[in-house]
Design a protein around this nucleic acid. Structure first.
Lengths: 220, 220
DNA sequence: ACGTCAGTCAACACCCTGTCGACTGCAATC
DNA sequence: GATTGCAGTCGACAGGGTGTTGACTGACGT
C-alpha cells in the first residue's frame, strides 16, 4: 500500500512487496463499509470512526488508507462514473435507426446506473457543495454526457431529422440538467416529483419536443 | 424577545415589555452578519462564533436568538421565498395576451429573484441535503411554482393554444426542475453551464417547444 | 540475525457545538 | 425607593468529532 493518496487512485504502485498486500483488503473493506452505511444514514451522520469500525480497524488506521471521509466518497463516485460512462456507450451512434427508441434508451440508462448506486450519488450531491474534488469529478461526468448529447443533436440536424434552433450544446445542457434534477427529486424527495414509473416517459417527451419540435421524430 | 424558536417565526409575541426590545436589533444583526459572511465563504466554513462576533455578541448569546446555525439560514430562506412567491405574482394570469412574453417574464423573474440572493440560495442548496427543515421549505416554494405553471399550461390547453400531451403537472415539474438545475450550474459552477446572458433564451425555447410543440406559441 | 517497511493504534491537541448557572440592568409594581 | 421579574449576556464546562504523533509489531528480503 502506498500511504494515503488523493483517492482518485486507480493503479496502486507497489514496491518490492507482493502484488496484493493486506492493505488492499482493508481499503476494500472501508469502501464496502461506507457504501453499506450510506444505505442506512446520511453521509454527514457517518463518522470516520463508524467507517473504521465497520471495516474492522481503528480510526487512526483509517487515515493510513484515506486522507479523509470525503476521499472515500470520492473513490466510490469514481467507480460509479466509470459505470455511467460505459452506460452511455454507443447508444447515440445508432440514433438514425430509431431515434425515439435510442433517446429513450439513453434516458433509461441514465436512470438505471444512478438508481443502482443511489446511496452514493445522493451522498455526492450533498457533499458536492462543500467539496471541490467531488464537484469537479461530477462536473466531468456531466460534461461527457452533455458532449455526447450535443454531438447526437448535431448529427440529427445534419441528416435533416431535427430542425435548427438553439446551439446544440446549450440544448444538451438544458435537457441533461432537467434529467439530473428530476432524478434527484425522485429519489431524494426534496421537491415536487414525477411518479417513478413515469419519469422516463415524461423526460423523453420533453426531449423529443425540444430536439424535434414534435413528440415523434421522423424515421430514417 | 421570545427565546430561541424554530426560526420560521414571523410575528414575535411580546409580553408587557416595549414593542421593540434590544433583542430585535441583535436578531437582525445576526441575520445581516450571516448574509454578509455567506457572500465571502461557504456555509460550512462559517462557525457560530463567526456569526456571533459578526453581530457583536458572544457565542452563548447567539443561542438566545437562534437554536442553531441552520435556523439562521432557514430564516434567511424564509425571506427569499416570500420574495420569490411575490415575483411569480400574476404573470401567468395574463398569459393569453402574449404567451411568449409572459413565459419569458416568469423565467426572468425566477432568475432575478434567486440571483439577487444567490449567496443564501446557494447555501440552502448545500444544506438542503442534511437539513430537513430547509428541504421542506424549499420543496414548498417549488410546489407553489409548479402549481402555478401547471395551472397556466392547463389554461393554454383549454383555450386551444397548446396541444394535449403529458399531464400538465408532470410537464410543469420537468420544466421547473430544468430551470432550477440550470440556474444552479450557472452560479455554483458545478457542471456544464450556459452563458449567463443566454440562460433565459435557452430555457424559454425549451419551454415553448415542450408546451406548444413550437418555438412560437399562437397569438390570442 | 537483521534492517526495513507496511500496517496498527493509544494518546494527544484542537476545534466546534450546545448547555448551565451566575450575573446585569431595566421596568413594572408595591 | 425598595422589590421583584425577566430580557439579555457570557464564562466555563462537557462532549464529540477530526487529524497527527510516536511507539509498536511482524513479515519479508538480504
Amino acid at each position: 500500500m502506498t500511504p494515503a493518496r488523493t483517492a482518485t487512485g486507480t493503479s496502486t504502485p507497489r514496491g518490492r512487496r507482493a502484488a496484493r498486500s493486506a492493505g488492499d483488503d482493508r481499503e476494500l473493506a472501508i469502501l464496502a463499509s461506507a457504501e453499506r452505511l450510506l444505505r442506512q444514514r446520511a453521509f454527514a451522520d457517518i463518522s470516520i470512526d463508524d467507517l473504521a469500525r465497520g471495516a474492522g480497524i481503528s480510526r487512526p488506521t483509517f487515515y493510513f488508507y484515506f486522507p479523509s471521509k470525503d476521499a472515500v466518497l470520492l473513490t466510490l463516485l469514481d467507480r460509479v462514473t466509470e459505470e455511467a460512462d460505459a452506460a452511455a456507450g454507443d447508444v447515440l451512434d445508432r440514433l438514425a435507426e430509431d431515434p425515439r427508441a435510442r433517446w429513450r434508451e439513453l434516458i433509461d440508462r441514465f436512470h438505471e446506473t444512478f438508481g443502482a448506486h443511489r446511496a452514493v450519488v445522493l451522498a455526492c450531491a450533498q457533499v458536492r457543495g462543500t467539496n471541490a474534488e467531488v464537484r469537479q469529478l461530477w462536473a466531468a461526468v456531466l460534461e461527457r454526457w452533455v458532449h455526447a448529447i450535443e454531438t447526437a443533436i448535431g448529427a440529427e440536424r445534419r441528416r435533416g431529422a431535427a430542425p435548427d434552433g438553439l446551439p446544440a450544446r446549450d440544448l444538451a445542457i438544458a435537457l441533461n440538467s432537467m434529467n439530473e434534477r428530476v432524478w434527484y427529486a425522485t429519489f431524494a424527495g426534496d421537491g415536487p416529483a414525477v411518479a417513478e414509473r413515469d419519469v422516463v416517459d415524461v423526460l423523453l417527451d420533453v426531449w423529443l419536443a425540444a430536439i424535434y419540435r414534435s413528440s415523434t421524430p421522423p424515421p430514417a
